[in-house]
Amino acid sequence: MAEASYTAPLATRGLGERLVDALLSGRGIWPAVPAIIVLTVVAVIPFVILLSLGFSDMEVSRGAIVSQTFSLQHLTNALTDPLYWTTFQRSMTLALTTTALCIFFGYPVAYLFLIGGRWTRRLILVLTIAPLLTSGIVRTYAWLVILGGRGVVNSTLMSLGLIDQPLRIMNTHWAVLIGMVQIHLPVMILPLIAVMSRHDGRLVEASANLGASRLGTLRTVILPLSVPGIGTGAALVFTLSYTTFVVPQLLGGGNYLNAATMIYEQVVYSLEWSKGSVSSMILMVTCLIVLVAIALVTNHFTRWTKGRDA
């Protein structure tokens, strides 16, 4: 009896279903193969090609490459060109400042999340996630409205009688910085919240019971424990703000050249693809260096916390 009922389902299974079983039982690598192929063709190979183009002379005609020969010319040209240095320096300063300011403005929100009640938490989540679902252009456009000549800031200041002439905020470094911080703030807050909601609430209580003030608890318990969150947030905000295109283009008024806008001009307008490849590579390598630095610093302070606990 038992024997029969054991073999029955197997017998009714067709070849197709057994094949599906083998593929989808989820024990082998098979389910991932299509994704691996697509990622290899559309990401890995293109990166290799990008690398090769940066090291070669080529002719481009009608969107296709006609000839290609090895050359270090473009790399050395880029590294000796002062325009590259100032552009990348500008992007780097802007991204690092943005990251620092996002930590400054984001951390208190995460702290409020930690000590807040259910509705405060829900409100913070809605206000943080909603902007991520809205396009970057829409969010940047809002700053055109706010900072423009007849915008919110200027009309408020003028109606208060503080200024006679509209301030020129748009198309300055400040407009770009303000936009950058506001647009990337949610990306900083979310990892912080994630780390904080994994905290053991009893640690905070224990600290209070031992007579620590709230600031003391924040400094000696909450802050050290949230270092990984700061690290993740900083890495995300840095990558995004270092490589962003929209904010400098719209709030910087066309003449604010950062690394991303430079690459765009080289690739789309002047069709200097070798230059574009080299710029993309420099962008990626410099970005990676900062990410490694952020990881090292994060790791250092995380270890320090662990050592202290032990």
Binding site: V42, A43, I45, P46, F47, I49, L50, L53, T239, Y242, T243, F245, A260, I263, Y264, V267, W273, G276, S277, S280, L283, M284, C287
Partner: peptide, 12 residues
């Protein structure tokens, strides 16, 4: 970075 991927795919 998205723009690097975009450029790479365009070139490839």
């Amino acid at each position: 970075p998205g723009i690097v991927l975009g450029v790479a795919v365009l070139f490839a």
